[in-house]
Amino acid sequence: MTHEVIMAGFGGQGVMSIGQLLTHAGMEVGLNVSWYPSYGPEMRGGTAFCHVIVSDEFIGSPLVTSPTDLIIMNRPSLDKFEQTAASGASVFVNSSLIDREVKRDDIKAYYIPANDIANRLGNVRVANMVMFGAFLACTGIAPVDVVELCFKEMLGPSKAHMIDVNRKALREGMKLVDK
């Protein structure tokens, strides 16, 4: 089992955070993991992205060149990464902000109105967690209680008030794919 994931969006949409969350959760369930961020000019105002590999095998290159999963938060990221996806890849598209569908017919698209759901929950900043919930439900990489423990730890005491809304967002995202 190997998931090679690219998460991408505008700076501030929380793609680095959900990347770290997946990495952390993968580590907790005993898998090999790596996380590699974009740290160049793209994160200074364009498309920020990170590469996450979760595998039961040794991880050689931490670079993801043909992702098995894409979590796409904005239109420029879809334009940038759609063609890189491996055949059969799962693509999670933030349909609240992205006004087009996936063009390729050899990849499976999930349209998640992440910003709309996050707004309904009262905080647009948890849109990333809605997307991550959908991804988690689809891949089953880690149990939801492990993921919740991880983001509790990542948020820390200073952001403890954010735990509840993140948990709700994660569960809403999971529900969307269950349907």
């Binding site: 580590m27 993991v33 790596s34 996380w35 590699y36 961020p37 740290y39 931490p62």
Partner: peptide, 8 residues
């Protein structure tokens, strides 16, 4: 890459 990446 080694500086920026994370692993356990």
């Amino acid at each position: 890459m080694l500086g920026q990446m994370m692993e356990p």
